[in-house]
Design a protein around this nucleic acid. Sequence first.
DNA 1: CTGAAAGCGCTTACAG
DNA 2: CTGAAAGCGCTTACAG
Lengths: 338, 338
Amino acid sequence: MKPTIKMIAEQAGVSTATVSLVLNDRPGVSAETRSLVKETISKLNYFPKRSASQLARKQTGNIGFILWEDHFSEIEMFYSQCFLGMELATRDSDYYILMTTVKLDFSTSTDLPRFLKYDDVDGVVLAGRVPHNLVSLLETRKIPFVLLDYEIPGKKHHRIAIDNFNGAYTALQELADRGRKHIAYIGGSAEHPSIKERYRAYLAAIGDLGLVAEEEKLDRVYKVDHEITREIGVEGVKTLLAKNIPIDAIFCANDTLAFGVLEALKRQKYTIPDDVAVIGFDDIYAARFHTPALTSIHVPKMDLGKEAFKLLLEVINNPDQRPQTRTIAVECVCRDTS
Amino acid sequence: MKPTIKMIAEQAGVSTATVSLVLNDRPGVSAETRSLVKETISKLNYFPKRSASQLARKQTGNIGFILWEDHFSEIEMFYSQCFLGMELATRDSDYYILMTTVKLDFSTSTDLPRFLKYDDVDGVVLAGRVPHNLVSLLETRKIPFVLLDYEIPGKKHHRIAIDNFNGAYTALQELADRGRKHIAYIGGSAEHPSIKERYRAYLAAIGDLGLVAEEEKLDRVYKVDHEITREIGVEGVKTLLAKNIPIDAIFCANDTLAFGVLEALKRQKYTIPDDVAVIGFDDIYAARFHTPALTSIHVPKMDLGKEAFKLLLEVINNPDQRPQTRTIAVECVCRDTS
DNA sequence: CTGAAAGCGCTTACAG
DNA sequence: CTGAAAGCGCTTACAG
């Protein structure tokens, strides 16, 4: 039979209150008593029953992880890796993660994740693009949460951010260092804050590096206002090439799109990287295995998840602190396309 | 303040026992009382607190999902899709899924998932290749479990299986129907039961279809005894081509490997599918988007997860039934490589 | 069909 | 520093 706190108390000759105190590393127990209790605990291989302590403590011990379903199903494992990193971090804690997906056209009345509906989490992390009404609901219900690689324009929330600006800037720097003079941008600008930042960095960098005159800054830009996919990369190349202006490098807003760019370039018989260099962003798993292997800005996805968890814990323990942004550094990984 | 069962009871003028009975859809309550209680419940927007009912009921309400960490990190989302399907199925139940990864050289004393260590799950599904000592531990601890796309030779367990044999056979049939006469196999044979089955089907089919004499059955086979990767595909093509025997089609043990095969074939200037047709297995997300789009045997990954959950529920509710295998049908999706 | 009461296994004031 | 006791919010025999 599984030991209970009562059995430990009896064995050790103390009260259950005392056992509880040492279990939770709380002061108010003499060193001797503490070690006696600890011995008894390990001798009987005892561990507290979760539901009992949750009930008494009025906590759930769970945290939610919410992801837009398209993000989960995509070929790139970006957010899944974040999840993994978070799960790893979680192992040193008493928290379990409950992961679920939501649609973007999300109704708070019919699509609410069960763990939110039934108050089964102490906090949640929202990864990537998520419905804004979900975020509002979390706010009004005062459920602690942190955004991972996302932000809502005009609003301040706790969040983990990728250093998109510096990452993109580094990519441009890298290309310029290798003598590229006509660097194009293919990507998006509005659908995701991260992409927006990368675009902003592109514009800043080509200016700073003296690559182009102010009035020609947009000449080598192809961007869309919706999700950026592999196909956008293909279209981007076609469009840019049709302009008949020199292009010797392309900075892509993410790797998936970069694959499309590479494909289109190959079809047009361009040699990579000699004719055109290409740099992506995210350094997804496939980047390394692509032919040619893609140069990309490496984002430490597991770290994102880990930091999200750490931040969330802080918010749970101190709900009233003001929103803070934790930025995660990135670096350029040079491979065969640059 | 959140309503409790006590408040519902008072409001409805009944005992908490009665409320509990209607909450759990149990007999022993008159129709009138039942509907009165139900009204009160929805009026106060009440839902039972999980930890309390778990404590009283001596259940956890959680099920574990365990995955080899390499399976999770891989480019292919195979098991992640299974997880998603399972999570979806779970939404109609009261269960939450706790997902974690394990190493293959797994120590039951130091690497045990927390939810197993602390008895926080009512059952678990093990997806793909998993450590055999983990399975043994589950058996001796009498924790209900089902294997998803895996089996342990010589042992009977509850499991969800892909119809690998018929899938592979169909692929061969398909190639033969299109006039291919010299069909090769590239893949593995031992590391995973599914792969083994696909290989077995290959041998059976080329025989049945009269494609090759018994003594030449192994002439067009390239297989390894470890994990099959993209690189294995490349090597396989090189090795087979070096034999200088006619080959007009290649059946690959999975899609990832097929990508390597395609790449190697292209490098050697073969036209696909005219010179050599290629069929993969699994129909991973990338298959559709590859250039050329890969013909593959489609495995309904979400269904695998869903069925695993359903089976697990049955086992939890009836732990002593004999091990059963539920086989999931597959079908050939023809695209540009065949 | 219904209710009073014990019990699930913890935590937390409160007294001493 | 330590213990007795109440309480967390359910479920489940048991009586009636």
